[in-house]
Lab assay of single mutants.
Amino acid sequence: KLETFPLDVLVNTAAEDLPRGVDPSRKENHLSDEDFKAVFGMTRSAFANLPLWKQQNLKKEKGLF
């Protein structure tokens, strides 16, 4: 399991300012399950079932792209 970080560490943070080991294209993977659901309004599995373009739009909207 990946290390999780608080939302404010990941949202609207440039790649070079992210904690070590965080993939800038997969910031959402480093949210706790609770934060993930609070941000996206759905579970990880529901998010994973969305088309890629919709996932990317949601990530942009939430500052996690």
Results as ranks from 00 to 15, higher is better:
residue 1 K to E: 10
residue 1 K to M: 12
residue 1 K to C: 03
residue 1 K to Y: 11
residue 1 K to D: 08
residue 2 L to R: 15
residue 2 L to S: 15
residue 2 L to W: 06
residue 2 L to D: 15
residue 2 L to G: 15
residue 2 L to V: 13
residue 3 E to M: 13
residue 3 E to Y: 14
residue 4 T to A: 07
residue 4 T to E: 15
residue 4 T to W: 02
residue 4 T to I: 04
residue 4 T to F: 08
residue 4 T to S: 08
residue 5 F to V: 13
residue 5 F to R: 08
residue 5 F to W: 14
residue 5 F to K: 15
residue 5 F to G: 13
residue 5 F to Y: 15
residue 6 P to R: 06
residue 6 P to L: 01
residue 6 P to H: 08
residue 6 P to N: 12
residue 6 P to W: 00
residue 6 P to F: 01
residue 6 P to I: 00
residue 6 P to E: 14
residue 6 P to V: 01
residue 6 P to G: 12
residue 7 L to M: 11
residue 7 L to Y: 13
residue 7 L to R: 06
residue 7 L to E: 11
residue 8 D to S: 13
residue 8 D to T: 09
residue 8 D to E: 15
residue 8 D to R: 08
residue 8 D to L: 01
residue 8 D to G: 07
residue 8 D to V: 01
residue 8 D to H: 09
residue 9 V to H: 11
residue 9 V to M: 15
residue 9 V to F: 14
residue 9 V to A: 09
residue 10 L to H: 01
residue 10 L to S: 07
residue 10 L to T: 06
residue 10 L to F: 02
residue 10 L to Q: 10
residue 10 L to P: 06
residue 10 L to R: 07
residue 11 V to H: 05
residue 11 V to L: 13
residue 11 V to W: 03
residue 11 V to T: 07
residue 11 V to E: 05
residue 11 V to Y: 07
residue 11 V to P: 03
residue 12 N to V: 02
residue 12 N to H: 09
residue 12 N to L: 03
residue 12 N to Q: 11
residue 12 N to W: 02
residue 13 T to E: 09
residue 13 T to H: 05
residue 13 T to C: 14
residue 14 A to M: 11
residue 14 A to G: 11
residue 15 A to F: 07
residue 15 A to P: 15
residue 15 A to M: 06
residue 16 E to A: 10
residue 16 E to M: 05
residue 16 E to R: 09
residue 16 E to H: 09
residue 17 D to Q: 09
residue 17 D to P: 05
residue 17 D to V: 07
residue 18 L to P: 04
residue 18 L to F: 02
residue 18 L to S: 05
residue 18 L to N: 03
residue 18 L to Q: 08
residue 19 P to K: 05
residue 19 P to I: 02
residue 19 P to Q: 09
residue 19 P to E: 05
residue 19 P to W: 00
residue 19 P to Y: 01
residue 20 R to H: 13
residue 20 R to N: 14
residue 20 R to T: 13
residue 20 R to K: 14
residue 20 R to L: 09
residue 21 G to N: 11
residue 21 G to S: 12
residue 21 G to D: 09
residue 21 G to T: 10
residue 21 G to W: 05
residue 22 V to W: 03
residue 22 V to C: 06
residue 22 V to H: 03
residue 22 V to T: 04
residue 23 D to N: 10
residue 23 D to C: 05
residue 23 D to A: 03
residue 24 P to W: 04
residue 24 P to Y: 07
residue 24 P to C: 07
residue 24 P to L: 06
residue 24 P to I: 06
residue 24 P to D: 10
residue 25 S to E: 15
residue 25 S to V: 11
residue 25 S to W: 11
residue 25 S to F: 11
residue 25 S to A: 12
residue 25 S to L: 11
residue 26 R to H: 15
residue 26 R to A: 15
residue 26 R to T: 13
residue 26 R to L: 10
residue 26 R to K: 15
residue 26 R to Q: 14
residue 27 K to A: 08
residue 27 K to C: 12
residue 27 K to G: 06
residue 28 E to Q: 01
residue 28 E to S: 03
residue 28 E to V: 02
residue 29 N to Q: 15
residue 29 N to K: 12
residue 29 N to D: 07
residue 29 N to A: 12
residue 29 N to H: 15
residue 29 N to T: 05
residue 30 H to W: 11
residue 30 H to M: 05
residue 30 H to V: 03
residue 31 L to C: 01
residue 31 L to T: 02
residue 31 L to K: 00
residue 31 L to S: 04
residue 31 L to Y: 01
residue 31 L to G: 02
residue 32 S to I: 03
residue 32 S to W: 00
residue 32 S to E: 04
residue 32 S to R: 05
residue 32 S to T: 12
residue 32 S to Q: 07
residue 32 S to H: 10
residue 33 D to L: 04
residue 33 D to A: 09
residue 33 D to N: 05
residue 34 E to F: 04
residue 34 E to L: 09
residue 34 E to K: 14
residue 34 E to Y: 14
residue 35 D to A: 03
residue 35 D to K: 01
residue 35 D to V: 02
residue 35 D to C: 04
residue 35 D to L: 00
residue 35 D to W: 00
residue 35 D to P: 01
residue 35 D to S: 04
residue 36 F to D: 04
residue 36 F to C: 00
residue 36 F to P: 00
residue 36 F to S: 02
residue 37 K to W: 11
residue 37 K to H: 14
residue 37 K to P: 06
residue 37 K to S: 11
residue 38 A to S: 12
residue 38 A to M: 09
residue 38 A to H: 10
residue 38 A to C: 11
residue 38 A to F: 12
residue 38 A to Q: 09
residue 39 V to G: 01
residue 39 V to P: 00
residue 40 F to Q: 05
residue 40 F to P: 01
residue 40 F to L: 02
residue 40 F to G: 00
residue 41 G to C: 13
residue 41 G to Q: 10
residue 41 G to R: 09
residue 41 G to S: 11
residue 42 M to P: 00
residue 42 M to H: 04
residue 42 M to R: 03
residue 42 M to I: 12
residue 42 M to W: 00
residue 42 M to D: 02
residue 42 M to L: 08
residue 43 T to E: 15
residue 43 T to W: 01
residue 44 R to I: 02
residue 44 R to K: 14
residue 44 R to T: 03
residue 44 R to N: 03
residue 44 R to L: 02
residue 45 S to F: 09
residue 45 S to H: 12
residue 45 S to L: 12
residue 45 S to V: 14
residue 45 S to T: 12
residue 46 A to L: 13
residue 46 A to D: 12
residue 46 A to W: 03
residue 46 A to E: 15
residue 46 A to F: 04
residue 47 F to L: 01
residue 47 F to A: 00
residue 48 A to R: 11
residue 48 A to W: 08
residue 49 N to E: 15
residue 49 N to S: 14
residue 49 N to R: 13
residue 50 L to A: 03
residue 50 L to E: 06
residue 50 L to M: 14
residue 50 L to P: 00
residue 51 P to W: 00
residue 51 P to V: 00
residue 51 P to G: 03
residue 51 P to R: 00
residue 51 P to E: 11
residue 52 L to C: 11
residue 52 L to G: 13
residue 52 L to R: 08
residue 52 L to T: 12
residue 52 L to F: 14
residue 53 W to T: 14
residue 53 W to Q: 05
residue 53 W to N: 14
residue 54 K to F: 09
residue 54 K to E: 14
residue 54 K to D: 09
residue 55 Q to W: 00
residue 55 Q to E: 00
residue 55 Q to I: 01
residue 55 Q to N: 02
residue 55 Q to V: 01
residue 55 Q to H: 00
residue 55 Q to T: 01
residue 55 Q to L: 01
residue 56 Q to Y: 13
residue 56 Q to L: 14
residue 56 Q to M: 13
residue 56 Q to E: 15
residue 56 Q to N: 14
residue 56 Q to W: 07
residue 57 N to R: 11
residue 57 N to A: 13
residue 57 N to M: 12
residue 57 N to P: 00
residue 57 N to F: 09
residue 58 L to Q: 02
residue 58 L to V: 07
residue 58 L to C: 02
residue 58 L to E: 02
residue 59 K to R: 11
residue 59 K to M: 03
residue 60 K to L: 11
residue 60 K to S: 12
residue 60 K to V: 12
residue 60 K to H: 13
residue 60 K to M: 08
residue 60 K to G: 08
residue 60 K to R: 10
residue 60 K to P: 00
residue 61 E to K: 11
residue 61 E to Y: 01
residue 61 E to F: 00
residue 61 E to H: 05
residue 61 E to M: 09
residue 62 K to Q: 10
residue 62 K to C: 12
residue 62 K to R: 10
residue 62 K to A: 14
residue 63 G to C: 05
residue 63 G to W: 03
residue 63 G to P: 01
residue 63 G to Y: 03
residue 64 L to E: 06
residue 64 L to K: 08
residue 64 L to D: 04
residue 64 L to A: 08
residue 64 L to F: 12
residue 65 F to R: 07
residue 65 F to D: 14
residue 65 F to H: 15
residue 65 F to W: 13
residue 65 F to Y: 09
residue 65 F to G: 14
residue 65 F to Q: 07
residue 65 F to K: 09
